[in-house]
């Protein structure tokens, strides 16, 4: 167990360094000059050159990377060109809202995906199975911003059930959460169906059935609990990605999370913010997965190291 933890953490550190290298190279290769973007169009070339020196942009590549890396270790993701604030602060301020939406989005995936998965397993290859399969696949096939706009228009505006975008409170997370839920539920449904069928075909369930246990009791009493393990494993990594910001959907709903921060940064070519949100999401995913893996090791004795 101890050596597993060391290996797992070691691997994670390698991955984190890799993330740093890639984001650095991407920022480095971007055609825009950071010094010019910070000082604005009206600054003189001399000043831009001076700032370039100050920022170390004239240093050899490896030295620039080293600076960049040290900054990352200190949680310094640079300064937004557009908002003139540290990127870390900008992300921090939006974390709360993003977390709320991530949770809502995840719940909607489960609310749609789990019942669908159960029914699809029970009615395997029946009409309901095919119907639900098609419905959930339509969800995956929709462009999220397209679906988001439709919900915004018909549900929020025409039916006047929700505010037409904005953030701050439960009324604001339902529609964007639902949008994400619809586009993501199919994965859960499919996963649960598969694992549910495996469980339903296992000996102990057959035994239970043969002893006359009712279908619903079997499903909810035994099968579902066991079948949920792979679903929750997927769910854990899924929610980690959600916390990185639901990029496009946040923007459609004008939701002030990390995702819309990223979209605004893209429209302004605010490179430090774009890269900052990329790194933030990536690091979050890695760390979250490490924690989940280690927790699994603690709670599930079947996993051996």
């Amino acid at each position: 167990m101890g050596s597993y933890i060391v290996r797992r953490l070691g691997g994670a550190i390698v991955v984190l360094i890799g993330i740093a290298v890639i984001t650095f190279l991407l920022s480095y290769a971007l055609p825009s000059d950071p010094a010019r973007m910070i000082l604005g169009m009206r600054a003189s070339q001399a000043e831009v050159n001076q700032l370039r020196i100050q920022m170390g942009l004239n240093l050899p590549l490896y030295e620039q990377f080293w600076r960049y890396f040290i900054n990352l270790l200190h949680g310094n993701l640079g300064q937004s060109y557009q908002l003139d604030m540290p990127v870390t602060e900008l992300i921090e301020q939006r974390l709360g809202l993003t977390a709320q939406l991530a949770l809502a989005a995840w719940l909607f995936e489960l609310i749609i995906g789990i019942p669908a998965g159960i029914i699809m397993a029970l009615k395997d290859r029946g009409f309901l199975d095919h119907t639900l399969n098609v419905i959930t696949l339509i969800g995956v096939s929709l462009a999220p911003f397209f679906l988001g706009l439709e919900l915004l228009y018909w549900v929020a505006f025409k039916a006047n059930l929700f505010p037409a975008g904005g953030s701050g409170g439960i009324m604001y997370v339902i529609l964007p959460g639902l949008t994400y839920g619809i586009t993501g539920a199919a994965y859960y449904a499919r996963l649960l169906k598969t694992s549910m069928l495996d469980v339903l075909n296992s000996d102990y369930i057959r035994t239970a059935r043969s002893k006359g246990a009712g279908m619903w009791r079997v499903v909810f009493g035994h099968a579902l609990r066991n079948a949920m393990l792979p679903v929750m494993t997927y769910g854990a990594t899924d929610i980690a990605a959600l916390f990185g910001g639901i990029v496009v959907i946040e923007d459609v709903f004008g939701y002030a999370g990390v995702g819309s921060l990223a979209v605004n940064a893209i429209s302004q070519t605010d490179v430090p913010v774009i890269m900052g949100t990329v790194i933030f999401a990536a690091v979050f995913v890695v760390l979250f997965n490490v924690v989940v893996d280690l927790l699994y090791g603690l709670v599930d004795p079947r996993i051996s190291y």
């Binding site: 290769a29 990185g244 910001g245 990329v278 990536a282």
Partner: peptide, 22 residues
């Protein structure tokens, strides 16, 4: 596999945006 882990950690859309910008 480590490289694969790295690729999977990135938020795909933003990652693609960054590369297209380059």
């Amino acid at each position: 596999m480590r490289i694969t882990d790295i690729m999977l950690a990135f938020p795909f859309v933003l990652f693609v945006v960054a590369l297209v910008s380059v």
